[in-house]
Design a protein around this nucleic acid. Sequence first.
DNA 1: TAGATTGTTAATCGATTAACAATC
DNA 2: TAGATTGTTAATCGATTAACAATC
Lengths: 239, 239
Amino acid sequence: MSADPSARRGIPDATVARLPEYLRALTGLAERGITSVSSEELASAAGVRSAKLRKDLSHLGSYGVRGVGYEVDHLAYQISRELGLTQDWPVAIIGMGNLGHALAAYSGFATRGFRVVALLDQDAGLLGQEIAGITVQPMTVLDELVAEQGLAIGVIATPAASAQEVCDALVAAGVRSILNFAPCVLVVPDDVDVRKVDLSTELQILAFHEQRKALAAEGALGAVALEPVKPELNRVVGR
Amino acid sequence: MSADPSARRGIPDATVARLPEYLRALTGLAERGITSVSSEELASAAGVRSAKLRKDLSHLGSYGVRGVGYEVDHLAYQISRELGLTQDWPVAIIGMGNLGHALAAYSGFATRGFRVVALLDQDAGLLGQEIAGITVQPMTVLDELVAEQGLAIGVIATPAASAQEVCDALVAAGVRSILNFAPCVLVVPDDVDVRKVDLSTELQILAFHEQRKALAAEGALGAVALEPVKPELNRVVGR
DNA sequence: TAGATTGTTAATCGATTAACAATC
DNA sequence: TAGATTGTTAATCGATTAACAATC
């Protein structure tokens, strides 16, 4: 609404969801030694239109220079700060099955201010085992993790059947941000945020569009062009 | 627009994205022996408001009975059909690192009409190895998979550096639906759909909201209630 | 100054919500 | 018929887009 940084409140959800992609694009440019970028170039690297990018960035403040563009390092820093990535976020992963294993070993977490401080499992058989250099602990250490390590984010990688129970334990310990990989709806208090990643759901959405394309190819839908696409770098369906 | 099923075209993206969740909720009800459900009950199980559910379902047709509700099995079938899940979808996973391993072993794919028909990797060292009962093959078999197995969906689980190359190979072979786990933007032709799952992005969005909550708790944002929440079962941020 | 590009405006589009007439 | 619940309407809200004035 205003260029005054103190007046920026309520960044739209849709904008927040795109900031990480902008940040990644900027990091890539910086690695290639590029120090300045226009909204057109950055938008192209992030797979969006330039108007959308400028609108998004306008919610953070006025960090560009008219006629010139954006300074890569400065904009990257501002986005990092807005996302809260200038601080360190301790993360716990619960559920050490195949997915939990993969998440524990995933280096992408560490790259952006996230630090896996604990791996937990309800299965006593896994306790003490070491995964990606971290010892698997029981759920009972949650209170301690919150109090002593400042744990604020929990990642649920358990089967659906135990996800709600694990979620309840996280909430009881004071964790208010949860990333849920279990294919189920979690019931939480209002002040707890849940984001869900569901592999099967993503495939089902793809299948819907794939089916449409197959039907269109067969001509079953007549001569109507099914999706009059606009030119865009990365055609992302849905969302 | 109309209850005539032949007139239903262009189901909104937001609706399509929720259909898998409705389907899952219905499956759960069916397993518990429940044969009939109201929009209020089903919405609650799926974590949305009943008005939204009814609006969503109205795009598929008129499958409820006023004063009574929906027949669980029938509605589940209609949603399955709409999503294209009454047919079998062959899927190939490319990139057999930690994540690829986990995806190959993930049983959630098989439950809903998806069948992993191939595991591929560019690394010759992995070829011939067996993962989750499937032999790892080279990228060169792609053409054959499309021609003989009807492969239509590819899952990219490679590092970001090779994702575009793998994507190009998939597109060249005729795959038009891609689920991308690599943290990068893929450039594809207009008729190819890409959905992206990015673990790090999800955490960054959580961090943004977590930071806001921490600031609010400190009182740094004054006495203003930060997010006047509406009562909803599952509080999901963003999207 | 002339050229370039931002930040903002205003129009458009799509999604959500509450309310209720239709109807079982 | 009375009670319940759907499917639809209309209002509201939020996101996208194109165009351009501001300004480096």
